[in-house]
Amino acid sequence: GSVVKEKKEKALIEVRPYVEYYNELKALVSKISSSVNDLEEAIVVLREEEKKASEPFKTDIRILLDFLES
């Protein structure tokens, strides 16, 4: 629970300088966080969101995924 939350919060802070739609990304992460149990599940849902998103938000999600998977 809290470790996953920390990882996601740290990821958002780390990617902030590189993303165009930070507030939207943060809102998406919050929405996903409330419906998943762990980081792996969150990553799966983020990948689905990435497929549906259009640029440049798609790239923002990709940047976040790269950080979460590192």
Rank of each mutant, 00 (worst) to 15 (best):
G1F: 01
G1D: 13
G1Q: 13
G1T: 13
S2Q: 11
V3M: 08
V3Q: 12
V3F: 08
V3K: 12
V4E: 14
V4P: 07
K5D: 14
K5R: 08
K5E: 15
E6W: 13
E6A: 06
K7E: 15
K7G: 04
K8M: 15
E9P: 07
E9Y: 11
E9H: 07
K10V: 14
K10W: 14
K10E: 14
A11H: 04
A11F: 12
A11G: 03
A11M: 06
L12G: 01
I13G: 04
I13S: 12
E14K: 05
E14L: 10
V15H: 01
V15G: 01
V15Y: 01
V15F: 02
V15S: 04
V15D: 00
R16F: 05
P17D: 07
P17C: 07
P17A: 06
P17W: 05
Y18R: 05
Y18F: 10
Y18C: 06
Y18V: 03
V19H: 01
V19K: 01
V19G: 02
V19Y: 02
V19T: 02
E20N: 13
E20K: 15
Y21F: 13
Y21K: 12
Y21N: 14
Y21A: 08
Y22M: 04
N23H: 12
N23E: 14
E24C: 04
E24F: 04
E24H: 05
L25T: 00
L25F: 01
K26H: 13
K26P: 00
K26E: 15
K26N: 08
L28R: 00
L28Q: 01
L28D: 00
L28I: 04
V29C: 15
V29F: 14
V29D: 01
V29W: 14
V29Q: 00
V29M: 11
V29H: 02
S30M: 13
S30Q: 14
S30Y: 09
S30T: 12
K31V: 12
K31W: 09
K31S: 10
K31P: 01
K31Y: 09
I32E: 02
I32H: 03
S33W: 15
S33I: 13
S33Q: 07
S33R: 03
S34T: 09
S34E: 15
S35K: 11
S35L: 10
V36F: 07
V36D: 05
V36Q: 03
V36L: 05
N37A: 11
N37Q: 13
N37T: 10
N37I: 05
D38C: 07
D38F: 05
D38K: 08
L39N: 05
L39Q: 05
L39W: 14
L39P: 09
E40S: 10
E40Q: 10
E40W: 08
E41M: 07
E41C: 06
A42L: 15
A42S: 09
A42Y: 13
I43N: 02
I43L: 12
I43Y: 08
V44T: 09
V44K: 11
V44C: 12
V45S: 11
V45Q: 14
V45D: 09
V45W: 09
L46Y: 03
R47V: 08
R47D: 04
E48M: 14
E48V: 13
E48T: 09
E49I: 04
E50K: 12
E50S: 08
E50M: 14
E50H: 11
E50G: 09
K51Y: 11
K51H: 12
K51P: 02
K51N: 12
K52Y: 07
K52L: 11
A53I: 04
A53G: 02
S54I: 08
S54T: 12
S54D: 11
S54G: 07
S54F: 10
E55G: 12
P56Q: 06
P56S: 07
P56M: 06
P56K: 11
F57E: 01
F57S: 01
F57P: 00
F57L: 04
F57K: 02
F57C: 02
F57W: 05
K58P: 01
K58F: 02
K58A: 12
K58V: 04
T59D: 08
T59R: 15
T59A: 11
D60K: 01
D60P: 03
D60N: 03
D60Y: 04
I61F: 01
I61W: 01
I61G: 00
R62N: 08
R62V: 06
R62T: 10
I63C: 05
I63P: 00
I63Y: 07
I63M: 05
L64D: 00
L64W: 02
L64F: 15
L64A: 02
L64P: 00
L64N: 00
L64K: 00
L64R: 00
L65P: 00
L65A: 12
L65K: 03
L65F: 02
L65S: 04
D66M: 13
D66R: 11
F67T: 06
F67R: 07
F67M: 05
F67V: 12
L68T: 01
L68G: 00
L68F: 07
L68E: 00
E69Q: 11
E69K: 08
S70D: 14
S70I: 09
S70V: 11
S70H: 14
